[in-house]
Write a protein that binds this DNA or RNA. Structure first.
Lengths: 347, 347
DNA sequence: GAGAAAAATGGCAGCGCTACCATTTTTCTG
DNA sequence: CAGAAAAATGGTAGCGCTGCCATTTTTCTC
């Protein structure tokens, strides 16, 4: 059987609707009987055009179902309406909130987010940053302050404003909006010590990937040491990322080893809720038998039968303010949004 | 005081790093002493180039910190490595999972997602679709089958492959990957009726915005009616979107009116968990006094002291398979990914 | 109503890259 | 080693739009 050579015009995907190539600005101009630049002015609402031609052009554009090509527009104007966003994960409850705050601002300003997910992997993050920068965004938002050397270099030298989110403990590249995790850790320790707890355990997840959880533990430890008290024991859930299940498993293992703990500090609310469920199920009375403390101030942690003791950060506001700063483009600076200790009922 | 006219070169944002305009492919070509097309071939790894020149070019590119301009590349090649994604919300636990599945596939194929969030508003969705189409993506993923007429028209006529996610109950535009919500509603009713529950209430959130929740209720009602049993009473939480709190409030109100219910069907797991917490707090014994049933099969719903009775859908797989189909570009078709009833311990 | 100012409009050169073709160089063949 | 085939390379016309400038038209002003 002979091999049939397919003519090139049949290899392109079949396009529904009978159009010979897509409608361009030139088509609209011809149809409206005006010059291209006039059409461009009308569509961007920029420059002066008489009411009559404006209507003529709008009519022609609508009739042709014209959709402007922003790729071409961006290339020509050398300024894009794209903003790059690199986040460590989407599953996480925290990131979507920041994203929501940022997105609201970006959308109002006509910007479109281009998103990359690093899965807490710095190497992947580096690749994503490079890839996103190749879209020549007007700004770049990344989570955290820790990046590979090459990633930092790219972000410094690309001529694009960069905003680092969610953390202020460290050296920023350009603009930084977040809160102190070390400080949150210290505040957590102070809170538990202040309530008289002395035999405190820790349940966390993989520190290598989640640097910020590591910083919290750091701060926590530091304050404990300053009070000459040690963390009795700790358990790291093997789970990738944070999860309720990790908390359940972690607390079970920890309590199996140490039955004399009076409080447990969790690396975040997800784990803490898992721990809380474990206690509910096993008749461990909270906070009398055992106190629990988390981090994040998730909605659900406030709605459990006993609200969780935790620390809340203004995540939506971080996203919002971060995006505003990025678009406004002022001088490089660090904004510490602070945090709030939520006493709850589990400590 | 005289007005100082600022020379144009000082009105551009100050760029860190001393570069006179950004490095372009032409710079790399000059530095490597070769033609532009050769550089392009090397950088895209496409076409034949000798080892010697390849190395020369790569070296030059690295030395100049060259970052390709994909905007220009896309315009020239008329095919982009962008995929548009329109989602109803980010806060929702469901969407991130689908996103994660899709993103994994997209990234492996070198695509970058451009995301828009509609907040369950069809008008906003329409605007987002238009906006995203103007970036000339290679594909478009949208949540759900319900769109404004103009949105449908744009998606049909734009020559871009479209994938509708999360639902199969209705007419699709091009490709569809999801599961039946009406079917899930029916299965939920069958399950509860099969276990002998007869006095069933419903707690849901705003149906107008979340069409899929409405479809589930529809299917649920239908099966109930076929069995000559009516939903005793219902409560719609006024909350925007789904939330644990809405469930708590809803169940409280419903039980205040009707103390004789033996089961409650929730529009989703978030609400159901809220309901569950309410029961825990008020000493309502589950499932003896009252049975609970949700929808989604969230991780957390499986880890409460009593696992929630619910329905799970393969969301990550939906995202993954959807993205694969979109990139592969086969014929238009509908893939029903089905669902699974999780008996749990709350019914 | 002439002359000036302001508003409206069109023309066209790029933006940085890729696709295509032409040309040069290298590698095969017998 | 000539001649052909294959590999390597360069030149260049756009992709669709915007920014700038030149030109035309309208609106003031006295």
């Amino acid at each position: 059987m002979a091999v049939t050579k397919v003519p090139p015009e049949f290899t392109v995907p079949p396009d529904p609707g009978e159009h010979q190539g897509v409608v361009t600005l030139a088509h609209v101009a011809r149809r409206a009987g005006v010059g291209e630049s006039t059409v461009s002015r009308v569509l961007r609402n920029h420059g002066s055009v008489s009411q009559r031609t404006r209507e003529k052009i709008l009519k022609a554009a609508a009739e042709l179902h014209y959709v402007p090509n922003r790729i071409a527009g961006t290339l020509a104007s050398m300024s894009s309406k794209l903003v790059g966003i690199v986040i460590p994960s989407v599953g996480n409850t925290v990131v979507p909130e920041v994203l929501a705050g940022a997105n609201a601002v970006l959308e109002d300003a006509g910007f479109q987010p281009v998103i990359g997910v690093s899965n807490y992997d710095p190497v992947r993050e580096e690749a994503l940053i490079e890839s996103i920068l190749s879209w020549r965004p007007s700004g770049l938002m990344v989570a955290g302050l820790e990046h590979t050397d090459r990633a930092r270099e790219m972000m410094k030298g690309c001529g694009v404003r960069v905003l680092e989110l969610l953390d202020v403990d460290g050296e920023g590249i350009d603009m930084v909006v977040g809160s102190s995790h070390r400080g949150a850790g210290r505040a957590s320790a102070e809170f538990l010590l202040g309530r008289g707890y002395r035999r405190i355990g820790y349940v966390g997840h993989d520190m290598r990937s989640d640097v910020r959880a590591g910083k919290r533990l750091d701060g926590f430890r530091q304050t404990m040491e300053e009070n000459r008290i040690a963390i009795v024991d700790h358990e790291f859930s093997p789970d990738r990322g944070s999860s309720v299940e990790g908390g359940r498993i972690g607390i079970a293992r920890l309590l199996a080893r140490r039955s004399d703990l009076d409080a447990i500090y969790f690396s975040n609310d997800d784990l803490a809720i898992g721990g809380y469920f474990h206690c509910l199920e096993n008749g461990i009375s909270i906070p009398d038998d055992l106190a629990l403390f988390g981090y994040n101030g998730l909605e659900i942690a406030r709605l459990t039968p006993q609200p969780l003791s935790t620390i809340r950060t203004p995540r939506v506001a971080m996203g919002r303010i971060g995006a505003q700063m990025l678009l406004a483009g002022g001088p490089a600076r660090v904004v510490d949004m602070g945090f709030e200790v939520i006493p709850g009922a589990t400590s």
